[in-house]
C-alpha cells in the first residue's frame, strides 16, 4: 500500500488532481480531520465546558476561545522548548527573523490567491518560506564572514520587505487581512489553524525528544561537539527548521512581530529557576503556559491585543522572578 500513501502525500499539496487518485488521499485526510474534529469538540470542548461550569466563566465555553486556549497551550510548550536551544547560543533573534520572513510567505500566498487565483493556505506559504529562510540563515552564518546578527538582520528585513512589496503589488486589496497576521488575533483562529498547530507541535516535541542529546551538546559546546564527531550541521539545520515550525504555528495568535517572544522570554525566566537543563526546560514550558493562558484571558476580558498581552504577561513573570531571585 505504499503507492497510494505516497501519492496521498504529494496529492495533498497539488491544487488540481484527478478524481481517480484523489480518493485515497481524501479518505486519509478525512479520517485525520474526523479524529481531530472529535478531539476538538468532544475532548477539548468537554473539558472547557466543564471548566466553564465550575468557574462560572462563560467565555471558556465559546468554541473560538477554546481554540485560542488550545493554541496558546501548544505554543507555550513548543516555544520555550525550542527557544532553550537558541537563547544560550546568542541565537535569540533567529525566531524573530524567521517570523518576519514567514510574513513574506503569508503575503506570497495572498498574492497568488489575488492575482492567479491559486488558493494556497497562508500558513502553508508561511511555513514553506520560513523553512527556506531557516536554511538560508544557517548557510549565511556558516559560510559567510558576516557576523551572525548582521546576517539575521539582513534576512529579517529582507523577508519583511518582500512581504510588504507583495502586498502593495496587489493594490492594497489584501492589506485588510494582513493585520491579523502582523499583530495576531484570538477570533480568527480557525479549526484548520488549530489542527496545523497541534500537528506541528507534536512534530516539534517528538523531534526534540529524539534529538535531545545532540541538541544539548551543540548548545553547550559546539566546538567540542564537532571534535566528538557529532553532526553539528545536521543538528543546526534541525533546530532552524523546528524554529520555523514554532513561529509559523504561533503567528496566528501572537502575530509576526511578537511571535519570537515566547521563544525567548520564558527561557530567560527559567534560566534563573532551573539548576539542570532539564529542569529549566520544564520551568520554561510552565512560564510559557502561564503567560499564554493569562495573556489570552486578559486579552479577552479587556478587549486587548492577544499577542501583546501574552508578551507583557511573560515579561511581568520575568521581572517577578528576577526580583524574587534578588531578594532571596
Amino acid at each position: 500500500m505504499t503507492g497510494p500513501v505516497a501519492l496521498a502525500a504529494t496529492d495533498l499539496l497539488a491544487v488540481d488532481f484527478s478524481a481517480a487518485d484523489s480518493l485515497a488521499p481524501l479518505l486519509v485526510a478525512d479520517a485525520f480531520t474526523g479524529i481531530f474534529d472529535w478531539f476538538l469538540t468532544a475532548v477539548v470542548g468537554g473539558v472547557f465546558s466543564w471548566l466553564a461550569g465550575v468557574t462560572g466563566l462563560d467565555f471558556l465555553g465559546y468554541p473560538y476561545m477554546q481554540r485560542a486556549y488550545l493554541s496558546v497551550l501548544c505554543i507555550g510548550v513548543v516555544g520555550p522548548l525550542v527557544g532553550s536551544f537558541l537563547v544560550y547560543r546568542d541565537l535569540s533573534m533567529v525566531g524573530d527573523t524567521l517570523a518576519h520572513t514567514a510574513f513574506a510567505g503569508v503575503a506570497l500566498a495572498l498574492f497568488l490567491d489575488a492575482t492567479l487565483g491559486l488558493a494556497v493556505p497562508p500558513l502553508l506559504g508561511a511555513l514553506v518560506v520560513a523553512v527556506v529562510a531557516a536554511l538560508v540563515v544557517q548557510a549565511l552564518i556558516e559560510y559567510t564572514d558576516a557576523r551572525s546578527d548582521a546576517a539575521l538582520a539582513m534576512v529579517l528585513t529582507g523577508g519583511f520587505a518582500l512581504g510588504s512589496v507583495l502586498i502593495s503589488l496587489t493594490g492594497g486589496g489584501i492589506s485588510v487581512g494582513i493585520n491579523q497576521y502582523l499583530f495576531g488575533s484570538l477570533a480568527t483562529v480557525s479549526r484548520a489553524d488549530v489542527g496545523l498547530l497541534v500537528s506541528m507541535g507534536l512534530v516539534v516535541v517528538g523531534s526534540v525528544a529524539v534529538a535531545y542529546r545532540p541538541l544539548v551538546y551543540v548548545t553547550f559546546d559546539e566546538t567540542a561537539a564537532r571534535a566528538s564527531r557529532l553532526h553539528v550541521r545536521a543538528v543546526n539545520t534541525l533546530l532552524s527548521i523546528l524554529t520555523a515550525f514554532v513561529v509559523v504555528s504561533a503567528m496566528r495568535i501572537m502575530g509576526v512581530i511578537l511571535v519570537a517572544a515566547l521563544l525567548v522570554i520564558p527561557v530567560v525566566t527559567a534560566s534563573r529557576l532551573g539548576r539542570s537543563f532539564k529542569q529549566s526546560l520544564l520551568y520554561g514550558v510552565l512560564a510559557g503556559e502561564l503567560a499564554g493562558v493569562a495573556g489570552v484571558t486578559v486579552a479577552y476580558l479587556y478587549g486587548l491585543a492577544a499577542g501583546g498581552s501574552i508578551v507583557l504577561v511573560a515579561l511581568a513573570g520575568f521581572v517577578a522572578v528576577a526580583a524574587g531571585h534578588r531578594l532571596a
Partner: peptide, 15 residues
C-alpha cells in the same frame, strides 16, 4: 556558554 546556561556538572560530564 557554561556561565549562563543552566546545566549541571553531571549533565556536562554525561555529554
Amino acid at each position: 556558554a557554561a556561565r549562563d546556561m543552566p546545566v549541571t556538572v553531571r549533565e556536562v560530564v554525561r555529554m
